[in-house]
Computed example of a mutant assay.
Amino acid sequence: MRILGIESSCDETGIAIYDDEQGLLAHQLYSQVKMHADYGGVVPELASRDHVRKTLPLIEAAFAEAKCGPEDLDGVAYTAGPGLVGALLVGSSIARSLAYGWQLPTVAVHHMEGHLLAPMLEERVPEFPFVALLVSGGHTLLVKVSNIGEYQVLGESVDDAAGEAFDKTAKLLGLDYPGGPLLAKLAEQGTPGRFKFPRPMTDRPGLDFSFSGLKTSAANTIRNEGDDSQTKADIAHAFQTAVIDTLAIKCKRALKQTGIKRLVIAGGVSANTYLREQLAKVMQGMQGEVYYPRPAFCTDNGAMIAYAGMQRLKAGQTGDVSTQVMPRWPIDSLPSIA
């Protein structure tokens, strides 16, 4: 079977073609980062309009890369949520229109399920069950994964997501958008121990996260300590260390609670080198294993949507021609593929 995947939930247009026997045949991606940088963040209306311009040309490029055409497809998958409603509607409308014209079934894919399953695109894949840390600009979740569609949310952020806190703190440090990766790079030049920020909600039971207070601590330090380059680097180092220590503590707690020794990290922040290093140490200490997608599949992409869509297509979970998107969509409400 072969499927076309369309990702348009925010500021990346991702297109991929996936074959359940041959694997990933094509992967096309266009990022709107430069367009939104002038505004210091994603402008939803501009994002939607750019998806309109880029989706069809990228689909044509994917067909060329895969050396196939619509007649070789068995379905079309698209991101139905969560995400920006206008951007989701663009991808949904295009996917359903093409599928109707090509007489193919459509599959509505949950964006975070796509991230959760992205490590399955690698040669080394986790077995079920595992614990997944989904960490991005919009979400921070700990999920027990028993099978595809069998998800139990163990903990989530009660305010800012980790990636959002990275971006907001980077902006306070005067870094360009998107600030998270720039803050991580600046942190490499920081002096360990000069500043120490709290590890929120680690002094009490539970697996929920909170990063807004940590962001406030960083903002107060930036305001009080001056703005020379070394001080900024030291604050970045302290901030990144606090966020990642918090994530590592909660991951270790979730693994002990579930008795599982397999950890998956996915989402945009999972590309952070320091996060990977710290979670590798956690899993080494617990005699467990950690899995993650390659950096290109950490951020939003069509490959993860195509893969997730393929699993549900094979399970017969397809939709009709109506256009429906869900800007908010709990991941634990998804049906199992069993």
Rank of each mutant, 00 (worst) to 15 (best):
V153Y: 13
S212K: 03
E188H: 04
V42M: 13
M35T: 00
L313I: 02
K67H: 14
S93E: 05
M1P: 01
A338C: 01
L56A: 15
A236Q: 06
K314Y: 07
G316W: 14
Q32S: 08
F197Y: 15
L73M: 14
Y78Q: 02
Y18R: 09
P295G: 02
H36I: 11
K250C: 14
L186H: 05
Y30S: 15
T216D: 07
M326Y: 15
G81D: 12
Y39N: 09
P129N: 00
T55R: 04
E277K: 11
A165V: 05
A62I: 10
D227V: 00
G14A: 02
S336M: 09
G226R: 13
D20Y: 03
A61H: 14
G86K: 07
Q284A: 10
Q324M: 07
F211Y: 08
P327H: 00
D160F: 12
K171H: 03
D234F: 09
E188M: 10
G5W: 11
S157P: 10
G285S: 02
T231N: 05
L116A: 04
A165L: 06
K54F: 10
G288I: 04
M112P: 05
L133I: 02
M201I: 13
T231K: 06
I260S: 04
L141Q: 10
Q257C: 00
G174Q: 05
L247Y: 08
G302R: 07
I331M: 11
L279R: 09
T231M: 01
K250R: 14
S93K: 05
G155P: 08
D50F: 05
K314F: 01
Q22W: 00
A187W: 03
E7F: 05
M120G: 01
T258A: 12
F166L: 03
I15V: 15
V42S: 12
R96G: 04
G75Y: 14
I305E: 12
G114W: 04
C68T: 15
A280V: 05
Q287A: 15
G149N: 12
P192M: 08
G316N: 10
G319A: 15
G206P: 06
G174R: 05
H27N: 15
T299S: 09
H36N: 14
D167A: 08
G213C: 06
G179I: 00
G86S: 14
V107G: 11
G14T: 04
A296T: 02
G163Q: 12
D208A: 04
K232E: 01
D320S: 13
T79Y: 07
D227L: 11
E45Y: 07
S93P: 02
G40S: 10
E60I: 06
I59D: 13
V269Y: 03
G149S: 10
T13Q: 04
T216A: 14
A236G: 03
G190I: 04
G309C: 05
Q317L: 15
L255S: 08
N301H: 08
Y292T: 11
T202R: 09
G81W: 12
E7G: 01
D38W: 07
F239N: 08
A219Q: 13
G69W: 11
S229K: 10
I235R: 06
A236W: 06
Q189S: 13
K144L: 07
F209G: 03
E12W: 06
Q28D: 03
A266G: 06
F197I: 10
P205G: 03
H111D: 11
G91W: 08
V42D: 13
A254Q: 14
I6A: 01
M283Q: 05
V290E: 02
A187H: 03
Q240K: 09
V264T: 01
